[in-house]
Design a protein around this nucleic acid. Sequence first.
DNA 1: CGGAATTTGTGCGTATGTATT
DNA 2: GAATACATACGCACAAATTCC
Lengths: 237, 237
Amino acid sequence: MPKYKDIARKLIRKIDSDDMKQGDKLASIEELMKYFDVGKNTIIQVLTLLERQGYIYQVRGSGNFVRKHRRHGYINLLEANGFKSTLQGFRLGSEMLDLKVIKPTTEVMANLDIPEDEDVYYVKRLRSIEGRKFAIEKSFYVKDIVPYLNQEIVEDSIFRYLIEDLKLKPGFTDHFFRVGKLNKENAELLNLKIGDPTAFLESIYYLENGRPFDYSKILYHYEEAQFFIQGASNTEF
Amino acid sequence: MPKYKDIARKLIRKIDSDDMKQGDKLASIEELMKYFDVGKNTIIQVLTLLERQGYIYQVRGSGNFVRKHRRHGYINLLEANGFKSTLQGFRLGSEMLDLKVIKPTTEVMANLDIPEDEDVYYVKRLRSIEGRKFAIEKSFYVKDIVPYLNQEIVEDSIFRYLIEDLKLKPGFTDHFFRVGKLNKENAELLNLKIGDPTAFLESIYYLENGRPFDYSKILYHYEEAQFFIQGASNTEF
DNA sequence: CGGAATTTGTGCGTATGTATT
DNA sequence: GAATACATACGCACAAATTCC
């Protein structure tokens, strides 16, 4: 592991600990250089990374300060897998409703950028949080990249399987978000009424090399799901 | 303007042009160094910035490739001001419903991190797109930072006024997102029915120095609003 | 298939500019 | 105005991944 990632992890652990709160000042670049025994560039690289991940904000001439969001139970849409760290501490469940290999629809072809004869895994899951119905998820995986799935994997964590077992490297993601009304089928699955609100999230996950491998459509229970998005410093363009 | 920002803008113009599409390869770092007559670090800095902004993805040993989303009419939640570039080309309107200086509620105090006796501007606007009702926005500005607002400013663009006239420098942003049902008052404003779905977005805008200056709550018309969020490469943590 | 060439990634040292304290 | 701290930028060396032959 490169030095800057190692240092970043250590600083993140420090920031996440109870020692630090919003607005606290980090050690100066000079001090961090000495402490970790690395060059200035490396520290700058670390701080740039932390800023981009939303852990700190940088103020020129002044210092680097902790950024700590104070709301819990929100899904952080900027983390690789939609159901991660911000929901830590909650009991999550996954019930498999369907799992099969199919040929892609036009919609799936377009979003995964594949031809019509390419096989895809179709997975439908009912997700729960603390035992309550939380979301209906329909996912499509390019079989060429994800050659095998079974019930055990699907009810545990597909992403963990992809990363740890298949050694895939997810890169970036596109999320598309809308609000709508539930139809009969989905309302019944979520124990809601027809016409009740729902958050509809479409996500396309790409590997590091830019190839899309997962297209997912999620309908959230409107009373259970809430989302969090951190915008970094843009300055123009 | 620093070299890396200047180069970034030029590359973004190039990428946004019709010449380039998703997956196209940029010139190599070596070539960019020669073309712009700068050092390698500067080019790397440019590419890191473009990657973070979602314009490109980087593949080690291979090259840098254009990332171009193909959906229009979506609001990009990662851009400083919620109603920017992705809605370019649409006719946007702002009708002022209320504008006054008030003392903060507990909620506003907490989100803007101010004491109870600090004055805030309260602005309520009805926003439209292509003449259709689009969203109801209630915003709170710290008067100490934004000392003056009037109807003209509020019905044009508050952010443009803050940046260009007040010379404020917005830094980062926190967005919180939920789905809910409309009450009578808001349903009437949006020409919808009581109980219809709505997207509810709370945003806190901070200056570069980390001080919050704007807390906004927006209720979107569920048939008009759709959102776009680009996740960058995270790789672990 | 293997090795060479290409391309990007990490890291050091240094100098100078700019904003804050 | 001086001291401190972060920002930009150059040049160099070597590592790691991909691509080409």
